[in-house]
């Protein structure tokens, strides 16, 4: 697995991400600066990590989405290359047009930093093949703008096409408004692109990979990527 983590000014989760990638795949990812215009040759996974690129100025992810490297990321995605976009990375991917919709202020206006429960909607994707569909995992979130919104047609389309990959649920996997803490439409926590090669999600699976620091529910997402790329 040859992965590249894009580093934007104001990002702060790139090291957690790099550590998780190394921990699970055994290979050090390349760190790619936002002002570069090319990805390292042979990159098969691009990661847009979390943080506060450009201090969230204008709109979260808006300025990073227009960075020079994003043209290369767009080309990579258009060719079917895998892209994992987490938290601020998800916001950047939406702003860049890699994924539909937008992440708005949390419904109750609070920045929320805690562990949440996610239901995995399907296991036939490059990101979740090591999980069982319907499984519930526990992962942390840390965001103020994670309230997924899109127009009704877009929501209907991504639902019909089975592109909602993660939803906020109760610990038993049931939808419950009390556990949809940021007010996201249909409790959407993560979505796939049309070709299913780009995943955007608000929670941080990279923080739950190492038993030395706690739960390891996020680890299989990285193992899924490794096994997908090994099989390719």
């Amino acid at each position: 697995m040859k992965s590249a983590v894009v580093v934007f000014p104001g990002i702060n989760r790139e090291r957690d991400m790099a550590r998780a990638l190394k921990f699970v795949s055994g290979k050090e990812p390349a760190m790619v600066w936002h002002a570069d215009s090319e990805l390292p040759k042979g990159t098969d996974l691009v990661v847009l990590p979390g943080g506060f690129s450009y201090g969230d100025y204008l709109r979260c992810g808006a300025i990073a989405a227009r960075a020079p490297i994003m043209e290369a990321v767009r080309t990579h995605a258009a060719k079917g290359g895998l892209v994992l976009a987490v938290c601020n990375g998800f916001q950047i991917a939406c702003e860049a047009g890699l994924l539909p919709g937008v992440l708005m202020r949390n419904a109750r206006l609070k920045f929320i930093c805690k562990e949440v429960f996610l239901r995995i909607e399907r296991s036939d994707t490059p990101f979740t093949r090591q999980y069982n569909a319907g499984a519930v995992i526990r992962v942390p979130v840390a965001h103020g703008e994670g309230n997924y919104v899109a127009d009704a047609d877009t929501i209907a389309r991504i639902e019909d096409e089975g592109r909602v990959l993660f939803r906020y649920t109760a610990p038993d996997g049931k939808l419950d408004p009390a556990f949809n803490f940021n007010g996201a439409t249909n409790a959407i926590a993560g979505i796939l692109s049309e070709k299913r090669n780009v995943l955007g999600l608000m929670p941080h699976p990279e923080n739950h990979v190492d038993p030395a620091v706690g739960p390891t529910d996020g680890r299989r997402l990285f193992e899924s990527l490794v096994s997908t790329l090994e099989a390719a």
Partner: peptide
């Protein structure tokens, strides 16, 4: 259209 507004919302 390119930056100041997000035409989705």
């Amino acid at each position: 259209e390119k930056l100041l507004a997000n035409m989705v919302i």
